[in-house]
Nucleic acid binder design. Structure first.
Lengths: 342, 342
DNA sequence: CTGAAAGCGCTTACAG
DNA sequence: CTGAAAGCGCTTACAG
């Protein structure tokens, strides 16, 4: 038995191709009785629209932009590299992707970049955003122009973005605390927290989740004030170093974003590498080496390849008005020990 | 600027469409000088083949079969359900999927089922296999008939299967041991190991990795002989129960496959739930509840949705002779704590 | 070794 | 409210 086509359905229903198409795509302007006839024929013939033929005939073009803060941040460089790679293969599917790089921690620059996008008749944009009102307004303006906008890695929930693609950062913070609490079973002491910037929502949420679980479940572990590395290894190293020098009872470090190189250096210089329980975020060349050397106890990761693919799929689905598969798009909080490293 | 088509390339190179197609698909029978001209034109025009048009014109049909042992095993039922769901949506892409259910732990029945497939002119088959010589030969015969075969969840590495889709099970076992060793820091005692069947390669590999790390890194934790549950909760419960009754110093349980219900029951009946560190495999309704209740300390998981999608993508890529994206197809060893549950 | 023409299964103006 | 016809960008026999 061979697949039924629109021609078969048209013949069976006694109508033309155009009418079949109107019913299939719910374009309206068809008598209820005719719709009924067509739907009968569809289910009788077990018809299913061929997606390749539909794609070809529709001549849709998807113009996408990815806005990514870049600098020395290895995770974001990896993400940009994945997007670049996918941009190349996606051309075969009529998807063109521009990567817009912006300076990190700079809401004004980001808002400017988004404003630039307004003139480019984009289908959609994926934005690794800082969360403040300037950025939120810039996102909402883009959406108002008819551009599908999704946030990537860090969310701006108050904006009109259609979707957020990234991990649940509070859950990630809670997971880090749970792991640290168990790994340090029976110990008492302070825990240092190194972030990139508290202006980043993802970092703020991780901290929130982490401290929440530490306070309620592991009261013997006392969090220190957060230290900000600002994507600068020297800054992170110095700030964590000052805490390490001041408090002799630091038993854990939560490196919740982009400060891994500084953390490693600060520990090594003081002979503390491997003696303090360190949980870090994002699997990069540096963090992987630290995990293998026993300097890090665990790494929480989000897969940049998955995030890039997911963003493209979701932006296309939004543009086409079709459903997405939530299971496929959920970005997992990967936990890596030395033993399950890819 | 609008996308170049084969017509543009043909005009630019001064040849016909057929020749462009021969070069694009490396069919041979084209003069070197002509190939050169065409390739020049392609790169000059920055041409990229439209995949929807190619799909439509080629009229490929992908006839796939998934062979899955079913019974009371929740994980495999979930996997079959995912495949069923994808079978429906894949019809739009000319992929038809049959699900063949076989009894569990039965190499003969599996080999018979594979033999049945030989007559069905399949494009490809994904098999959740037991590893023995009968099954291996049945796989090799299918491959010899020109069917693309991949193993799913559990590998048969000595066979001619083109690909294995699933987690690295030794690494999963090592990960379980690492977690347990750290969660039980400072404790001494025995560790029970509950498997489905040691005839399953995935279970054997998990045990291997687990004992390896326990012996070398956590010598205070002594593994007991493996108990086999055979996908039967009562059997698993009784066998583990016997060990719990006999040894008062059991501090951990590694439930490495399909015995979770029995494990939970055995612990609960003895008032040991939450007092022993249990690491289990596969996220199901039962294991999720146990994790939330504190009966399980962690769950290692492989995502059945990912495995099903990956199997379909890989079988299609094998049939078309195109490359796969290894990053997208790698099945991760998910680690779930209560805090990062989806 | 190369080309002209038909066809894949949809969608899209356009006409009525 | 409905239909006839052209076209999307490839691939495929077939002919030479």
């Amino acid at each position: 038995m061979v697949r039924a086509t629109v021609h078969d359905v048209a013949r069976a229903a006694g109508v033309s191709l155009a009418t079949i198409d109107r019913v299939l795509n719910r374009r309206g302007g068809v008598r209820a009785a005719t719709i009924e006839k067509v739907e009968q024929a569809i289910s009788r013939l077990d018809y299913r629209r061929d997606s390749a033929a539909a794609m070809l005939a529709k001549q849709h073009e998807y113009r996408l932009a990815f806005v990514i803060p870049t600098g020395v941040n290895t995770f974001l460089s990896n993400l940009a590299a994945e997007v670049r790679r996918l941009a190349d293969v996606s051309r075969a599917d009529r998807v063109s992707i521009a990567i817009v790089e912006v300076p990190p921690f700079d809401g004004e620059a980001l808002a400017d970049a988004l404003k630039q996008l307004e003139t480019q008749s984009l289908t959609g944009a994926a934005v690794v955003a800082t969360d403040n009102s300037t950025v939120r307004q810039a996102i909402d303006r883009l959406v108002a122009q008819g551009v599908c906008v999704v946030t990537l890695v860090s969310d701006v929930p108050a904006s009109k973005r259609a979707h957020y693609i990234g991990i649940d950062n509070s859950a990630a913070g809670r997971t880090a605390a749970s792991l640290m609490g168990r790994f340090l079973r029976g110990e008492k002491g302070r825990v240092a927290i190194v972030a990139g910037s508290m202006l980043l929502r993802d970092h703020a949420e991780r901290r929130f989740g982490f401290e929440q679980v530490l306070r309620t479940e592991f009261p013997d572990l006392v969090p220190l004030p957060v230290v900000e590395g600002l994507d600068n290894a020297a800054v992170a190293e110095e700030a964590l170093g000052a805490q390490l020098d001041r408090y002799a009872d630091i038993v854990g470090v939560y490196s919740l974003g982009a400060g891994n190189r500084g953390v490693i250096a600060a520990l090594r210089k003081r002979g503390l590498a491997g003696k303090i329980c360190v949980i870090a975020h994002e699997l990069t060349a540096h963090s992987r080496a630290a995990l293998n050397d026993g300097v890090f106890a665990a790494i929480l990761n989000q897969d940049p390849g998955h995030e890039a693919r997911s963003a493209i799929r979701i932006l296309r689905a939004l543009a086409d008005g079709v459903a997405i598969d939530p299971g496929q798009e959920r970005i997992r909080i990967d936990i890596y020990l030395r033993d399950n490293l890819p």
